[in-house]
Write a protein that binds this DNA or RNA. Structure first.
Lengths: 128, 128
DNA sequence: TTCAGTTGTTCTGAAAATAAGAACTATTGA
DNA sequence: TCAATAGTTCTTATTTTCAGAACAACTGAA
């Protein structure tokens, strides 16, 4: 088992962050970690739609977040402690993560609302 | 030639935006369009490192930005007019795009600086 | 008109990234 | 020592992305 890789703060890139957070499961995981600022296990996470995600896939997702510099993972016995690196990143890119997390929350709230009121999700895209 | 597809504002997703801006060429293009808020041709764009990008690839990049909802493209004779949709998006996700653009600028400035002072880009990642 | 030049799109095959089952590693507690 | 738990790595199938080649749409000149 090879050691966990964490980029130095100056090697964290905007593109890397964007890419890591371009996956619905990964933003959800990261939002969880960043908001609660508590650990969050790797293998137990059911996505937004409550479908179980294979643990190999989750492991890869955590790896992506880690190697993008968004979280810091530390082995704690058999489990993993995952903490967000928001503080560090906010010094380098002020306001970036708060803005993304806030947008994510806005979108989630809107989705929950439309799910409750039963509005059909409009897939229609305006063609010109 | 099929019509250009633009998502309605309520169909623009954070993940979609993140994904579109997770590519160095695409952020660069988008930053250009958003900053200058002027058109920006599709086929003439040399990336950050000044290497020419094939026009088919550029066309795809513009398509990605368009379908993520970040830009609005309109055929103007033989050319294309590309405008950012920052205004609309800022109403739905306040502060998101400004934060990303600002982070992108910070990173670019830092890169230019290290390129000038010749500091070797440290790829080293702290292994634990 | 017709034709060449320009701008951008679409098609296509190769290369790269992602997803998830299966096998494996590491740690703990009985 | 062994079973249980938490994660990782290997591997293959699928999906995305890249970029050359062919194509489509418009313009301006002959």
């Amino acid at each position: 088992m090879r050691p966990l890789v964490h980029p130095a703060i100056e090697d964290i890139s905007v593109e890397g962050i964007m890419h890591a957070l371009s996956d619905p499961v990964r933003v959800a995981i990261f939002a969880d970690i960043a908001m609660s600022n508590c650990s969050q296990n790797c293998t137990s996470f059911s996505s937004v739609e409550d479908k179980a995600i294979p643990k190999s896939t989750l492991s890869q997702h955590f790896k992506s977040l880690r190697e993008a510099g968004l979280i810091r993972s530390e082995r704690l016995g058999v489990e993993m402690q995952n903490l967000s690196r928001c503080g560090e990143i906010d010094k380098r890119f002020p306001g970036l993560l708060p803005a993304i997390l806030s947008a994510h929350k806005i979108q989630n709230d809107a989705r929950q609302h439309t799910a409750k009121t039963g509005r059909k999700k409009s897939i229609r895209a305006v063609a010109k």
